[in-house]
């Protein structure tokens, strides 16, 4: 099954984007954020690499989907800064433990990194420990994007998953024959 940029746009419509204030926020960010913070392109690359292990193997089109979704979420006030900071922290762990940036790790090493960070067993918490923030801003961010999209829903058997404004027809229909 193929994910598309349109799926990402649909997920963003459900979950919200930066909105009109985004351009102003970017200008502020460039002035105020620490210089060693990952830039947006690097954050997107890291998220794409992680999505490749977080998403089921039968999905294709992960890169454009994640690129579109994460680029917009980085513009969201408050959320974007925290996402950028968490990706930076995880990337530093990747450098310390695997001598490479997240995007350069093998899929097995990316998965190992998430488990070494404790994010697999952590509860998500936007203001929590590194593990809890990775769970919130990386793992659950990407899983929420997928499973609130129609394509992600269809993987499970629901065309109109919770969070997606998919209308009032599908609940009336029987299962596909």
């Amino acid at each position: 099954m193929e994910l598309t940029r349109r799926d990402a746009t649909i997920a963003l419509a459900a979950l919200g984007t930066g909105g009109a204030a985004a351009a102003g926020l970017r200008a502020t960010r460039e002035r105020d954020e620490p210089p060693d913070r990952l830039d947006d392109d690097a954050v997107v690359s890291a998220m794409v690499a992680l999505a490749e292990v977080l998403y089921p193997s039968e999905l294709s089109g992960i890169e454009p989907f994640v690129e579109t979704f994460v680029t917009e979420r980085l513009e969201r006030e408050g959320h974007g800064e925290a996402l950028r900071a968490t990706a930076t922290d995880l990337n530093e762990l990747a450098a310390a433990w695997h001598d490479a940036a997240i995007a350069e790790l093998s899929p097995a090493a990316r998965e190992e990194l998430l488990r070494e960070a404790g994010a697999d067993i952590a509860d998500e918490a936007p203001d929590g420990t590194t593990a809890e923030r990775v769970r919130y801003f990386v793992i659950n961010e990407l899983l929420m994007a997928l499973y609130t999209s129609p394509t992600g829903g269809e993987l499970v058997g629901i065309e109109n998953p919770q969070g997606h404004p998919g209308g009032t027809d599908t609940y009336q229909r029987g299962p596909p024959s």
Binding site: E58, E124, V156, P161, G163
Partner: peptide, 26 residues
């Protein structure tokens, strides 16, 4: 359970997660 809410809890992802969602939804 709602699939997305299930997906955000648990210690699995990838194919294992999808298998769990399919086993528990529908």
């Amino acid at each position: 359970p709602s699939p997305v809410e299930m997906a955000l809890t648990g210690d699995d992802w990838g194919d294992d997660l999808l298998e769990r969602l399919r086993a528990n939804y529908g």
